[in-house]
Design a protein around this nucleic acid. Structure first.
Lengths: 281, 281
DNA sequence: AGCCGCGATACCCGCCGGGTATCGACGGCG
DNA sequence: CGCCGTCGATACCCGGCGGGTATCGCGGCT
């Protein structure tokens, strides 16, 4: 199976429309139809159910969509990492990816400590959207990530725990509940007029519910400060708070563990040293 | 990057010889040279150092060899799993791989328990050489494996622990040490005339040392029974012993954990049910 | 009935992957 | 020291395949 065929099939499977997929791929529709047919013949499997009004995935097609994405990521990773390995000295030796607006202190400490090590290489820091870090590791855009359990999935990655912290509720200053020594999750759900914002999911959609839609932490903090929302966040957000917000411990929220994660078959000395530095912090 | 190019490069990188690689690939040597040159041009990287007497890998080439193998495995997995998903009912629903000659009781119990579950599918059992299981999972030849820590690597796999056991030393019946209630690893290393056999490594070579070379457990047991060797093995081997051998606990050997492992992104109901059954044993 | 949207088919062209023949560089050996 | 053997690169040719345009066939909607 060639990567071209896989790319073509994945495009059709995602669009569920040969015409749109062809446009996305920058080719005409007939060759795309033909390529997918040929793939189906070679696999001996029907991947798509065609009706004259559109396309639907078969079970086998769903399997190939999932596995094919993983395979294309692996190919992309091979390509990117080879390019990086061949790049002249001075380019980034390691790329670290983490969520935008999280772990800033831990990250700063880690980068400082690592830079002080003998033989340290340049580290590029990439900030990306929630849930995108694992993808960056799998397709070679990054070598190592800072993830936050239980929010981020770490399946298929090697990890070391760095830090665990409890979560706090963020309330507008002056709210009656700020007087309480601690809260429970149910207390917050019951506050009238202070809904929990809905974060954008990986696929771009938002969960149902009453709260406002947000997609980054800055927006969220602003909404809390304005008295329009509340939120449960790791206690390290306290360092970002001014006196317009108050943090109250939430005793029954799951605690958050920051982990350093990397693709399992990585074998680079700088990466090993960065991980060692991280675990010693 | 096309899988064809990757396959070609991997063949050359493994053979370190264009002619042999071409023969292995079933093509002539000139197109192979050209394909690798084209790959190098596209990547903007020198992958191989050519001398008129042969070929050596550059750093970038070593990266692409490792990453490329992983990518080709992922492509092969996509292909195999799709074929399986499309195969008519009656073909194996799950393929389980484990070391030849290990975990037989646990495996039998697991298969029995799973077969009794409602909705269970057929399970094919594949026995393979030591260290080959991970590869079977990664390239789609198997869906799930029984592994033994700390011997098998589980990096990049999801696992659940099933069973932990201590290790025992296997001695020929009548040996003076069989009178001892327990032993230490150092005691065994010091026995004259009873060396530890050398097991074949993944690459087919054997470690240096005095012991005989073996590559499976049957051979090993035979050598012990003949009074030509000793070995440290999980205590479950006791069930295979006749009265020609004696097992003595080794108190400082690492204990062995049997785990069930699967590729991290698997999403099949039968697999989930098998894993659930396994953890409940 | 007629039109429209969508995927499949028919047919053509140019490029690229594969083949054979040969070259050029290097090392070994008589 | 010159000859030869080995090995990768180059030159050149051919056929097939990937990609393009034009068109068909089917189904749903109005």
């Amino acid at each position: 199976m060639e990567t071209r065929e896989l790319r073509y099939f994945v495009a059709v499977a995602e669009e569920l429309h040969f015409g749109r997929a062809a446009r996305r791929l920058g080719i005409a529709q007939p060759p795309l139809s033909r390529a997918v047919q040929q793939l189906e013949r070679r696999l001996g499997a029907t991947l798509l159910e065609r009706t004259s009004r559109g396309v639907a995935l078969t079970d086998a097609g769903a399997v190939l969509l999932r596995e094919g994405r993983a395979a294309l990521d692996a190919v992309a990773a091979a390509e990117r990492r080879t390019r990086r390995a061949a790049a002249p000295a001075g380019s980034p030796g390691l790329v670290l990816v983490t969520k935008a607006g999280a772990s800033t202190e831990l990250l700063a400490k880690l980068l400082d400590a690592y830079a002080a090590e003998p033989g340290a290489v340049d580290v590029d820091v990439v900030l990306c959207g929630i849930g995108e870090q694992e993808r960056h590791l799998r397709d070679g855009r990054a070598d190592v990530a800072l993830l936050h359990r239980p929010f981020d999935s770490t399946t298929g990655l090697d990890t070391e725990e760095l830090h665990t912290e409890d979560q706090v509720a963020l309330l507008p200053a002056g709210h009656p509940m700020t007087a309480r020594p601690h809260l429970r999750v149910d207390d917050l759900a019951a506050i009238p007029g202070l809904p929990m914002p809905r974060r954008r999911r990986d696929d771009g959609s938002y969960p149902d519910g009453p709260g406002p839609e947000v997609h980054d932490n800055t927006q969220l903090l602003q909404l809390v400060a304005l008295g329009r929302a509340t939120a449960i966040l790791p206690e390290s957000v306290r360092t970002h708070l001014h006196d317009d917000m108050v943090a109250v411990p939430v005793i029954d929220a799951p605690s958050v563990t920051t982990v350093i994660a990397w693709p399992p078959h990585s074998r680079s000395l700088p990466l090993a040293q960065l991980i060692r530095t991280a675990t010693r912090l």
